[in-house]
Nucleic acid binder design. Sequence first.
DNA 1: GTAATAGTGTCTCTGAGACAGTATCTC
DNA 2: GAGATACTGTCTCAGAGACACTATTAC
Lengths: 262, 262
Amino acid sequence: MSKRPLPAKRMSYRTRKHRSPDGLPTDICIFTINSQSRNTKTKSLPTKQLAVLLIKRKSTTFGEQWALPGGFSKENETLDEGAYRELKEETNIDRDVHIEQLRTYYKPGRDPRGWIPSVAYVSLVHEDLLKHVRADDDASEARLFPIDEALHLNLAFDHCDILTDALARVREKMLQTNIAKAFLPDEFTLSELLQVIETVVPAFKVSDRGNFERRLLSTTRRQGILEPVLSGDGQPLYSTEYSNSPAKLYRFTDYTPTPMIY
Amino acid sequence: MSKRPLPAKRMSYRTRKHRSPDGLPTDICIFTINSQSRNTKTKSLPTKQLAVLLIKRKSTTFGEQWALPGGFSKENETLDEGAYRELKEETNIDRDVHIEQLRTYYKPGRDPRGWIPSVAYVSLVHEDLLKHVRADDDASEARLFPIDEALHLNLAFDHCDILTDALARVREKMLQTNIAKAFLPDEFTLSELLQVIETVVPAFKVSDRGNFERRLLSTTRRQGILEPVLSGDGQPLYSTEYSNSPAKLYRFTDYTPTPMIY
DNA sequence: GTAATAGTGTCTCTGAGACAGTATCTC
DNA sequence: GAGATACTGTCTCAGAGACACTATTAC
């Protein structure tokens, strides 16, 4: 502990002669799932890939390196509003998407321009809303990278750390909450759901699709996470989008159990 | 979206004429568990209470109101270091305790002194390390409040929101991770563990103590969360601190399963 | 014996997972 | 019939929870 008494931490702001941060940007990890339809003889599920949106920096600092999208927050907006504004500016999305604060990053020197912490956000966006961002356009400003590729890029600032943490957060919440809905249409089949989970969390392996189904639907503990989509006369609705055999459609309810270790 | 082109968000810091934050304090929700031994005829478990440390502000802003401890972070330290420094200054604790970032709060006007976001932290501290903070000393600067009482105080700033979020975080992690260890000695009995969980999460109710025990020890899914404490010759150690009937001592291992809803 | 905690025994019903089988529909 | 997905049947063993019971030890 310091020898001299510290400048009292409850001293009024106006009398402080402290230096204060040079800005408080929000940086956003925008995740999406990229579907690629396979060329099969009959209808089939597309292959999916978890991807993240990066932009190419054009400034002198970290010029030409890829970085997370983001920008400085403003005094007259909340941090969430700032992040959402940046998300919109970067993607042109103009409706509600999943966005949550991850945490704030600062260590001395993380930004060569000065004392600039970063409030990191995580956003999950359905691929339909990012159609205009081409995954393979190398000349563009913004691009979707498969997550493994992104992690091996030499990202600007400490964005590699942020991305790593963000991915861990998404994987955790994918198994513990119903955020899978961010990557799914309102109504989906169990195979689609399973595929999304497996795409985001490769470690999640289900040996038997049928058992997954039973577990989700016939376990009292999980009762009510999903509900079948019914037509007007109470009959379940089916989809034949990805298979010739009609598959029941489900949707998420508002109910999410809290899973626990004890 | 604004009509005029925004000042390019990747414009170099030195050329920006933006206003920047007036400081970036860390505020810490320091939780502990307060034990009070009951006056019973034989040895018994103490009653426990979840409590949070608050300090009485003495500045002009929010003078005399209770608030979360905290203080301005500095340019040459990480946010975690700043929070830990404040924790130490406030409590005189000088060893590792559980501390984690919650999230950062800002909305216009949250601090009358200016543009001052707050990086909130959550810390869990064993009561033995807070012995010098008396829970019932009304004249003191710092005081422990039972959590329900604290939530009904008119706290300074948006500290009530922060505390609410912090409590939710602690409750969630209490069930999903082994943070209970922060409130327990290294070696503890199953009754102590159960009591800590029930104290932090009142909704967690176990009808039958014996079933709790079996679940924790004889379920393959939970195998390895706890391990019995063994003496030199491989015999389990027992405690008679809270009961005449010796109770087996356990400790947490490093293993924590990821609970999931699917 | 009493008080307070620590545990065991046993029973029932749910459920997880393995494996095999059938169904649907298009080409 | 091939191909891809969508289920259903059945068996086994683990496990959650209810309830009742015994054990330990200081007083």
